[in-house]
Amino acid sequence: MRAMRTLFVAGSLLALSACGNERNAAELPPLPALATITIQEANSDQGRAWDGVVEAIQRADLSAQTTGRAVGVDADVNDRVAAGAVLLRLSAVEQQAGVNVARAQLHAADAAASEAEATVARYTALAAKQLVSRLQIDQLRATRDRAVAARDAARAQLLQAEQQTDYTVVRAPFAGLVSARHVEPGESIVAGQPLMSVYAPGALRIQVQVPQSEADAIGVLKRAQVVLADGRAIAAAAFTVYPAADAAGHSVTVRVVLPELTDPPRPGATAKVMFAIPGVGGVVRIPSSALVQRGEISGTYVLDGNRLFLRQLRLGVHAGEQVEVLAGLKGGERVAADPVAALQALAAQRTAAGKASD
């Protein structure tokens, strides 16, 4: 591997030297015999492609809605859980104490309201006999209304306290797969702290950003193709073109829904979405074996007369042993079929040139 890297660097330096010495190109010794490939532009039957990321349609990031200590973690990453299954349990000492206080306050408020209603009933009977004034009746009714309102408030506080207790048990919102766990048993939890993430693996989609100039052409199409990271090409179940463009990037979002797959990709995996846009042609493809890869940079050796130089490429979709070239090559150019042989031929040419100059 170290030798290959040395050859790559040497070849790059030789290629740069050849590119910058056009005036002496005719004086270079002939290159050794080298197998080449003539680039041909083909009409695209796939159209254009854009990169996207697979994401789950149904996904939930669960966070704590109350404080406590994690007393039990019942699910872990990659566990399949049913809807309503218990994922995490928090201590509920404070919450249960709040329920007890709220229940006691409700009992007291209920007793006060019952007493006020009974008093109003007795004084109403006396008022019929004109034994009490209307003012007293109005005052007693106001007292009764306040007592009833206090009882309703106490009942609402009890419901709120019971809800806080329910928050100590975290359940799965739907059937799915646990994708992340952010808490350990015994850990202190505060409200708002992330706990777990769950997603439904059967429903997946991809969102890509396309130029606004292509959005209308994509909108009239009826199908799209998705190429997954493992090379599988599948037909999209449906796609939606957003009606508005992003003001900053001048792009339009296209949401592509994947069909149900027996081996679905993982959320977060990269994928390419291809649209058969009418009028797209001039697609250049070369064999993957003709590529030179250096980290994130891809290139190939291009033959121009008696000169051989390394040119950087921008690549598109990989399809089998072929790869699409988005920029860097055009039809009619010749490239070396074997990068190692091209590097050796370039070194031999430079060596011969050095001897001739001596």
Rank of each mutant, 00 (worst) to 15 (best):
A353E: 13
V170W: 08
I189K: 11
D358G: 08
Y123T: 11
L228P: 03
Q65Y: 04
V86W: 00
G202E: 15
D230E: 10
F174E: 08
G47E: 03
V120P: 02
G98E: 10
A85S: 14
A217T: 12
A229D: 08
F275K: 06
A83F: 00
G268T: 14
A224H: 05
R350P: 00
L135W: 05
E260P: 01
I297R: 15
G11V: 12
A271C: 07
D152E: 14
R134E: 13
D145I: 10
D51E: 11
L13T: 12
C19V: 14
Y301S: 06
G331K: 13
L228N: 12
I39D: 04
L14T: 10
A336H: 03
A111K: 07
V323E: 04
A154H: 08
A345Y: 10
V280D: 04
R205Q: 14
V208C: 02
V71C: 04
L204A: 07
S298N: 10
G47C: 07
P185C: 06
Q212C: 00
P264I: 13
A15K: 12
T168F: 01
A15Y: 13
R146G: 02
A236Y: 06
D304Q: 13
S289F: 01
L62H: 05
L135D: 11
N78M: 09
P339L: 01
A229T: 12
K222W: 00
A60G: 02
D45A: 11
R23A: 07
A64C: 04
T253H: 02
D358A: 04
L158C: 12
L16V: 11
A248Y: 02
I277N: 02
L16G: 11
G192I: 09
Q164I: 00
A82K: 14
E55F: 01
L329W: 14
L326V: 15
Q312N: 12
Q349V: 12
Q193Y: 06
T165C: 04
T165G: 05
A108L: 11
R23G: 00
L131N: 07
G231R: 15
A290I: 02
N43L: 11
A342P: 03
A244E: 15
A26D: 13
E296Q: 14
R69M: 08
N100Y: 00
A109W: 04
R23I: 10
P265C: 10
D79E: 01
V273H: 05
A33C: 01
L313W: 06
R311C: 00
A149C: 02
R232I: 02
A203E: 15
A113C: 06
D166W: 08
T300P: 05
E184S: 14
D263R: 15
L13I: 13
T36G: 01
E22A: 11
V53H: 02
A237S: 12
R205Y: 03
A116Q: 07
P32D: 03
A347D: 03
A26G: 08
R181I: 08
G176R: 08
L88W: 04
A290H: 04
R103E: 09
T66D: 07
L258A: 04
V9W: 10
P264G: 08
Q157W: 00
P201Q: 14
A217S: 15
D74M: 09
T262D: 14
S179R: 12
L204P: 09
T165I: 02
P259K: 13
G299H: 07
L343S: 14
L258M: 09
G316R: 05
E162C: 03
K272Y: 03
